[in-house]
Design a protein around this nucleic acid. Structure first.
Lengths: 200, 200, 200, 200
DNA sequence: AATGAATGAGCCTTCATTCAT
DNA sequence: GATGAATGAAGGCTCATTCAT
């Protein structure tokens, strides 16, 4: 058992270094040599734990998404209505990337935009996170809280599109401001739209 | 003048080939050799018209965005209220990428996500397109059509985030469906949000 | 003694795996890892029994040639004249490789052609087999059965050259036919040459 | 036309360096870097003229065999009977390798023994040389000079097997003696076999 | 005796860029 | 203006070998 932990530890050690390096440029700019140096191991060792560069690359979200989903479940516990669940989802989504900026760069600037990733096994895992949003949206529709006349995928796109957009701009601007600063407005506009209520 | 036109023609000829090649993979996968072959010129010639590979890469949106803005102005002509302007903006945004899929791939999967692009001169041009959305939003707020209690940048993120999200997923799915098919729902949800009106 | 036997057993177990793996490609394509896997031991253990990869490689013929010579002596027992001895040699040579195809590949395509092998201790052992042919040739010359006007090494080259040539083509053609099918013709032509007897 | 010659010259320049380097070790031991250095060009240039390392490797016999066949035709001109043709073939075969020792090493120790070579296009070319021997053998059989009761392929194996064997041993012994020194004996034994004529 | 994780040197190959023609 | 041969740096990856356990 001690041995298993050691191997797992090495893997995480390599992934952690990879997040750093991949986060500092794109897939092609990142070099195995640099990852090895940052992880304080030899290049060969990386290939003992990962099949190739892409395998290591996709191992990053594979692990991070699992962490995200686990903590998300924890955060949602005790909340029952879809309104508050979705607000919590929104908050935790932003919080998660705020506290993992290097990973945010990798995910937003590289993976979400990588065709191979989209067809990889990891991407299936990644659906767990977006499916959770869909699940809450459906619950809201059934509870009569969210509109039923709109395709649920459009609603999902509204939510996730906005969130990804904001995280992406944030990393492109070098995380120069607080990602959570407009959290209130974001929820407001998602639920009530941009139209002035004076017009009702 | 004849000479200038000829130079411009060559440039466009190269850019057109570049859109094709860059659209078929990412920046690093695209090769100058292939672009040259597709444009029926030699590699050396490319370096007569463009400083380097990145310069050529960024010349693509520089030209396309100009086209977009020009046609957008034309499409908006005669429309006066912010509501219908924003709907038109939404429609034309989706239409533009629907009819330029290779460019859509390049822009969404590469440029929007490229730090150098973000700091490049071209990116300033690219702001013309997003600023136009902001302008309409502001007009709407002043007209009392759009809410003033929400930061205009959040509203912009709602709109553009969703649009980018949908275009991105569309190219990742190989343009397998009609990008405009949910246009109605998209407008609805932007203006009125996702909350059921039964709850008011 | 039990211990010595155990060591020998391990050695043979490794050599047997090595014959398989080396026979499936060339020296450089064969990997220690694969040999270890096939022998059901770890890579480290191989280095307990053999100094390095080449040492293991050359241990293959060292063992196989010993087997060849032992059985050859047995096959020659009771045969007295050089004619029949040489025919038997020819037959057993072909039979031996027919029944050891993986080893045939290694020996013909790799060792016979390897400078280090030629200068190795194993190669000296390998001379035992070719010397046996020379011995029979000399006996034949003394008995007046074989011509004396021809350098014995040329005769040896005629015999072994042809045999190696046929075994080599056979393994290059993936052992697709019976190596012994032309045994009769082979003997005939060695003894009587290619000239038509009509011309005498 | 000047340009074409220049390209051909470069190719030959690279091939000449490759013969040297490949002749000094095996395929895997030879390095592109060294070939480039010996040819006084950069590594990249090699890849402009050859697809990859193996392509360059096989280009060696592709050229040398052509040279061999051309000169062979020239040497055979004016000789009419199969006897003397075969003797000339034998002589020229040995002469050719005597005067191209580095190539002899490459061909005998590497290519003749390389499965990929055997399946390559070059190998088809290489059949031109061995087919010429077969052609002479058939002519001899028809003229009643060579025996018809022996499979022609066995006769070919007798001839080529012996020749390859002698060239191979010669290069393995570092060309320490004259490859042609036993030429007379070699012809004798091929035509008349090893059996003493006293026995007829 | 045995393991197998770790090493690290070394090699093929790609490709943006240059420059003589 | 245009060509395309030549460059050379850089990087992913393999694998024989070692050594702590």
């Amino acid at each position: 058992m001690a041995k298993i932990n050691r191997k797992d530890l090495r893997r995480k050690q390599i992934i952690e270094a990879a997040i750093d390096v991949f986060g500092n440029g794109n897939f092609h700019e990142a070099s195995i040599t640099e990852i090895a140096r940052k992880a304080n191991i030899s290049e060969g060792t990386i290939y003992f734990y990962f099949k190739n560069k892409e395998d290591l690359f996709f191992a990053i979200p594979a692990q991070k998404i699992e962490e995200f989903c686990e903590e998300l479940e924890f955060q949602l516990e005790g909340i029952q209505d879809a309104f508050n669940k979705l607000k919590k989802y929104t908050w935790f989504y932003l919080f998660h990337f705020k506290t993992n900026p290097a990973y945010a760069r990798s995910l937003m600037l590289e993976m979400h935009v990588n065709k191979n990733f989209y067809n990889s096994k990891t991407s299936v895992q990644s659906k767990r996170a977006t499916d959770k949003a869909l699940e809450i949206i459906r619950q809201g529709q059934e509870e009569g809280l969210f509109r039923k006349d709109i395709d649920e995928e459009v609603i999902q796109a509204l939510l996730l599109g906005m969130l990804e957009y904001r995280v992406t701009k944030w990393v492109l601007k070098d995380q120069a401001y607080d990602l959570l600063e407009n959290y209130g407005d974001i929820c407001e506009v998602i639920f009530n739209g941009i139209k002035s209520s004076e017009n009702i």
